[in-house]
Design a protein around this nucleic acid. Structure first.
Length: 106
DNA sequence: CTGTTGACTGTCG
DNA sequence: GCGACAGCCAACA
C-alpha cells in the first residue's frame, strides 16, 4: 500500500468531474502541502491514460502541461470537449470551473 | 551517493 | 503588475 503523493494525485485526478478543472496546487494542498505542486506535475508526468491530466492545469488556468501531450492543441481540444472554454491555451471562467478536491471531494 | 531537473506556488522587492 | 528566490520531493544521469 503506497499512499504516496503520486497515488493520491492519480486518484484525485480521476475523481475530477467532467467539465471541471483543478490546479496542481489544489491537489497538492489536498494532499497536505501546497508547495508539492511540483510532485503533482511529476506524477502526471507518468501520464497514465487512466488519468485525465488535461483537467489539471496551473493556478493561472494556463495549460502548462499541454506541451507534454501528444500534440500542442490536444489538451485544449480535450478541455473544449468537456464544454470548457479555452483560449490561447488558457481556461476561461477558470474560477467558475475550478474544482477544489479539499472542498468538493472532501 | 551527489547533483540537476521538473506539467508549481507563494512571498519578497 | 512583474521579476527573482525559495521550498517541496522524486526520478534520472
Amino acid at each position: 500500500m503506497k499512499d504516496n503523493f503520486f497515488d493520491k494525485v492519480y486518484e484525485v485526478s480521476r475523481q475530477i468531474p467532467a467539465g471541471r478543472i483543478t490546479s496542481y496546487g489544489a491537489i497538492g494542498k489536498y494532499l497536505g502541502s501546497a508547495k508539492s505542486a511540483r510532485m503533482v506535475g511529476w506524477a502526471l508526468n507518468k501520464c497514465p491514460i487512466d488519468v485525465p491530466a488535461h483537467r489539471v492545469v496551473n493556478r493561472k488556468g494556463l495549460l502548462t502541461g499541454k506541451m507534454h501531450f501528444s500534440g500542442t492543441s490536444l489538451m485544449q481540444q480535450l478541455l473544449e470537449n468537456e464544454n470548457i472554454v479555452v483560449v490561447d491555451s488558457k481556461i476561461i471562467d477558470f474560477d467558475s470551473l475550478f474544482w477544489d478536491p479539499s472542498k468538493e471531494l472532501l
